[in-house]
Design a protein around this nucleic acid. Structure first.
Length: 606
RNA sequence: GGGACCGUAGUUCAACUGGUUAGAGCACCGCCCUGUCACGGCGGAAGUUGCGGGUUCGAACCCCGUCGGUCCCGCCA
């Protein structure tokens, strides 16, 4: 049916007869000669239809509309010297058309224009409702090509490293920890339910117990939680697991994997090894476990200066176990007005979104004079002021912003403010090819964090991460005390403040695994019921193993400079987890429900 | 569950901040045009201003509710 791709033709094809198929991108009808831009996945080329080629052909050309599916047969010709289009890869040539065959017509108005030449912003709802049209556009084609190349490179790399690609079940069982499950009723096993996997975590560990040694998968994962621009109910992980390995080996291998992807897809040579930072250091200096270290404005703890201060907001925060931390905004006096850091201001509300009740500030004026609210100024003696200016490095013209209260909230709100101001003040370096890809391993996460609502410990990553032996020791009788405070052999890969992936060395000792599950409050009955198969497996010769999973959608989002992972997925869901094209999820018949032994309690709110 | 913003022709936007007939570009339809490439020219059709209620002499604009969407918090790695 076709001999070439439209976008692949060049001067070397001149005088050859070609058969092209594609979509009408646009027409220019001059009354005599008619130009048609024909587009397929490879690109666009100009077709030229002359009246002297016959009235039938001309009549077809005259009545074409955009997005008509067209076959064009004709000869490749060079364009007249003054008609060369340098903006087009195929701009030196054109097709002298001998025959046009309409393969399919377009009925009615198109909801939006596909042609890149009419790139008005289109409401995303509309793009998703007619995703097949949206996918025809260059931007989505580029993104999906980039996604394909990313996966292809990962497969080739892992193949070379001795990995096997193995599929794991999509219908599996619900587990207590983590996100809400998508649940599927079983017709055959009445009253029982499958859950869709939140990740292949346990299966990949069991593959290691099964002696497969090196596994990977492009794995679809499901989480029934509320959506964000970087979160979909079904998303894809590049998931891998290795037996007989160490943390360093896993980090090294994954750095090389990432470097291979960036090399192939972006042509960028990353510097290896990536930088490393412990979780504690990240929290102290940046207030987040995924810091953007491309710029400074670090958080500085100033508890010592304010613990005896008469400014109660600060001293109370410290005496109740919290912190006072600050960031120094260079030349902030000029760039950030008081209106913006007081209630109602954009900087203030950014701190508020992080949970802060307020945003205290000090402006440094000439001769180390400070300008702030009276309650702070009156309670800051000269020595304390001197120390503050010294450890913050604040100079004339600088603005110091404070967070005070519970340490987690201080960290969270100052992290937000820091990121917000970095964008506002353009502190993020854009220019150098390599510095815009700031990779960072964050290591030594705690095993657990305290969940206030449920009044219990919960696993920070998941409850299969192995604790650091240095923190745990060998004597089992001390596990009870030591485990809750232990660091995990867990690590995240962070790029420019976004988490790309994470993993850990896993527990392969069944007693330790039981102890960890007990620590997060699971009774031995629940452990037996929900994780019995894992404990059994660990008792039957489980090798030491560990692994990692990357968020593939997010990687592609960064590589394609998109702001939403929806633009990296062919058919994504909207923010209500609905597919605007198919309208899924939808009704099922009463008969289907009966077969599944399920009755709906849903009542339409009237 | 909560907060913010948005919804006007097929589409992207406008409409003096409450004023009478809701405009424009692209797309669409018709006519003209032989070297354009965001082709050009002339003409035309196209609207329940998301929906429901209220305030008002008068509502796209103000108020309440509702539906849909985006971003964020909670939630989620």
């Amino acid at each position: 049916m076709r001999s070439n791709g439209c976008g692949n033709l060049r001067k070397k094809h001149i005088d050859s007869f070609v058969q092209l198929c594609g979509w009408v991108d646009r027409c220019r009808d001059h009354g005599g000669v008619i130009f048609i831009d024909l587009r397929d996945r490879s690109g666009t080329i100009q077709l030229t239809v002359d009246p002297d080629q016959g009235p039938e052909l001309f009549a077809i050309a005259e009545n074409l509309r955009n997005e008509t599916v067209l076959q064009a047969n004709g000869s490749v010709k060079s364009r007249p010297a003054d008609a060369i289009n340098e903006k087009l890869n195929t701009g030196e040539i054109e097709i002298q058309v001998k025959e046009l065959i309409i393969l399919n017509k377009v009925k009615g108005n198109l909801p939006f224009s596909v042609s890149i030449h009419n790139e008005e912003p289109i409401k995303e709802e509309l793009r998703l409702r007619h995703r097949y049209l949206d996918l025809r556009r260059e931007r989505m084609q580029q993104n999906l090509l980039l996604r394909h190349n990313t996966i292809k490179t990962a497969r080739a790399f892992l193949e070379e490293e001795g990995f096997l690609e193995i599929e794991t079940p999509v219908l599996t069982r619900s587990t207590p920890e983590g996100a809400r499950d998508y649940v599927v009723p079983s017709r055959v096993c009445g009253g029982d339910w499958f859950a869709l996997p939140q990740s292949p975590q346990l299966f990949k560990q069991l593959l290691m117990v099964g002696g497969l040694e090196r596994y990977y998968q492009i794995a679809r994962c499901f989480r029934d939680e509320d959506l964000r621009s970087d979160r979909q109910p079904e998303f894809t992980q590049l998931d891998l697991e290795i037996s007989f390995t160490s943390q360093d080996e896993i980090l090294g291998l994954n750095e090389r994997l990432i470097a291979a992807i960036w090399q192939k897809v972006k042509g960028v040579n990353l510097n290896l090894p990536f930088k490393k930072m412990t979780w504690k250091e990240a929290m102290d200096r940046y207030g987040t476990d995924r810091p953007d270290t491309r710029y400074g404005m670090e958080l500085i703890q100033v508890n010592e200066i304010f613990k005896t201060s008469g400014f109660k907001v600060f001293s109370n925060a410290i005496s109740t176990g919290g912190s006072v931390k600050c960031i120094t905004v260079k030349n902030g006096n000029k760039s950030i007005s008081n209106v913006r850091i007081k209630p109602g201001g954009d900087v203030f509300s950014e701190a508020q979104k992080g949970g802060a009740g307020g945003l205290a500030f000090i402006r440094v004026r000439e001769n180390k004079e400070i300008d702030t609210i009276g309650a702070i100024k009156d309670n800051l003696d000269p020595q304390a002021k001197e120390t503050l200016l010294e450890i913050t490095g604040a100079k004339t013209g600088d603005l110091i912003l404070f967070g005070a209260g519970e340490t987690t909230i201080v960290n969270k709100s100052l992290d937000r403010v820091r990121q917000f101001l970095a964008k506002e003040l353009s502190l993020i370096p854009q220019e150098q090819e390599n510095s815009q890809w700031n990779f960072l391993w964050v290591t030594d996460f705690p095993m657990f964090q305290f969940n206030k609502d449920e009044n219990r410990l919960e696993a920070l990553h998941h409850p299969f991460c192995a604790p650091n032996p240095k923190d745990l020791g060998n004597e089992e009788e001390k596990w009870n005390d030591r485990l809750p405070k232990a660091r995990a052999q867990a690590y995240d890969l962070v790029l420019n403040g976004l988490e790309l992936g994470g993993g850990s060395i896993r527990i392969h000792n069944p007693d330790l695994q039981k102890q960890v599950l007990k620590t997060i409050g699971l009774s031995s009955e629940v452990v037996q019921e929900q994780f019995g198969f894992l404990i059994d497996a660990l008792e039957m010769g489980a090798p030491p193993h560990g692994g990692l999973a990357f968020g593939l959608d997010r990687i592609v989002m960064l590589l394609s400079s998109e702001e939403s992972i929806r633009d990296t997925i062919a058919f994504p869901k909207n923010q209500n987890a609905r597919c605007p094209m198919t309208q899924a999820p939808g009704n099922v018949s009463t008969k289907q429900l009966e077969e599944l032994h399920v009755a709906s309690t849903w009542v339409d709110p009237e």
